[in-house]
Design a protein around this nucleic acid. Structure first.
Lengths: 241, 241
DNA sequence: TTATCTGGCTTGTTGGAACAAGTTGCTTCG
DNA sequence: CGAAGCAACTTGTTCCAACAAGCCAGATAA
């Protein structure tokens, strides 16, 4: 099967990309250079954008995309979390970034996925803590935590929004210290809403992390889902034999 | 800023998507239904495809995409790996899948990324073990391992390709048992080559896992990079406080 | 009955054109 | 000198048209 013209143009452009941040030729020049129509050139450029290689916006020349990832240390993080303050913020600060936090607390009816993780009936009223984290005034991740009723019931502490970033500490403070965690990681393309909220460039996947925390008795005390722009973060774990 | 026509059409189609696997209306019908040109309808459909919501191929009607992810247990995996056979294959079998393995062994000059991880000079000749793993005759992941010279030198075992899936066991057998690991996870869009090798559908990101294994003396004895089709796998970790 | 073929469906590729809208730098005016 | 404004770029949106190519089912032939 022969290569189509737009594939050929895409390949030629891809191979001629310069340094990150450098400008691409304009569409008009690419039309001249490769003898293809603007439609074809634009199809090729759209493919490169979907691969996450270039950026584009109306009026400005396209540029080679540049990415920097912040490391998020998962193993350290939660253990520290059981004790002191916002370990995520500390991780970012240690890498020279300025972290920020938006938190909203609400009561919802447990959706299927949450109910399954927390081993409670679907529709049970539970507390959700939805967090939007920023680094250098750039939105970074949407981190939503859910707690089962037996943990939050009668605990005023859980309704205090000034207690930033310390859900682990919150659990420890209320006698439900986490003893074990089960994490999953996968990736998918963002919905339009997620893309807008995280100000994600086209061609950027979403890295999705879930964590279920269990207490010493093995009961799930917390379910957390974190959605991150994959070009801005790298998750890490340290393991021992 | 008003919604463009193709955005509007994309949104309307997105909201009318049926069950996974169900067929979409043809382009011609969408043109009629929304009063937009074929170009515009196709732009909307391309956006949905880039979001990973639908599939398309020439001649066949588009369908709502359906995904199933296999779990890959990272924490268990390597610890078992230090001892017995192919733990990855066992994990897949336990979930009802049929695993398969392609292995090729070669000597390369350490590229920058590998050299940094193994703490050796760039360009050092090292052994690379490139693995392609399948599940149910579907390509699943590209897993490349690299070993520093002091581990492989004079060890015939490392050149035996029949010893599938036991690099951890290989290290243990040759006196370089791994004591600690450092993992990182991130995601990006695949290159065309990766997309072809893994037979990935458009709109599917690549989940990239790296692991550096250290021996008891803290020397890196192995660097592994695994690239997975994100719609076919979910990585998991179990952690203790 | 079975295998083949063909016509009519589907999506894919490529061209053309016109206008809209955002950016940038130069020129001109106060 | 500074600010406003304009001209000339850039990419974005939307239409139209024609043909290529893959798929499938029903009709036809062995």
């Amino acid at each position: 099967m022969p290569e189509t013209l737009q594939e050929r143009v895409a390949r030629l452009i891809r191979d001629s990309l310069g340094e990150p941040g450098s400008a691409l030729p304009s569409e008009a020049e690419l039309v001249d250079r490769y003898g293809a129509s603007r439609n074809t050139v634009r199809a090729a450029l759209a493919a490169l954008e979907a691969e996450g290689l270039i950026t584009s916006s109306q009026g400005r020349t396209r540029r080679v995309r540049q990415i920097h990832r912040w490391e998020w240390k998962m193993a350290e993080w939660e253990r520290a979390h059981n004790n002191d303050g916002d370990a995520w913020a500390n991780t970012i600060k240690a890498q020279g970034g300025i972290p920020k936090n938006d938190l909203s607390i609400l009561t919802i009816q447990a959706p299927a996925e949450v109910a399954k993780a927390l081993q409670i009936p679907e529709g049970t009223p539970i507390q959700a803590r939805n967090r939007l984290r920023w680094v250098n005034d750039e939105p970074h991740q949407l981190s939503d935590s859910y707690f089962p009723p037996f943990v939050t019931d009668g605990n005023e502490l859980f309704w205090n929004p000034s207690d930033l970033g310390v859900q682990g500490g919150l659990l420890a403070a209320t006698g439900h210290k986490q003893a074990r965690w089960h994490d999953t990681l996968t990736a998918r393309m963002p919905s339009t809403e997620e893309s807008q909220r995280l100000m994600m460039a086209p061609g950027t996947p979403l890295l999705v992390h879930t964590r279920v925390g269990y207490d010493a008795e093995g009961r799930p005390v917390r379910y957390m889902v974190t959605r991150m722009a994959a070009d801005r973060v790298e998750v890490s774990y340290d393991l021992d034999a």
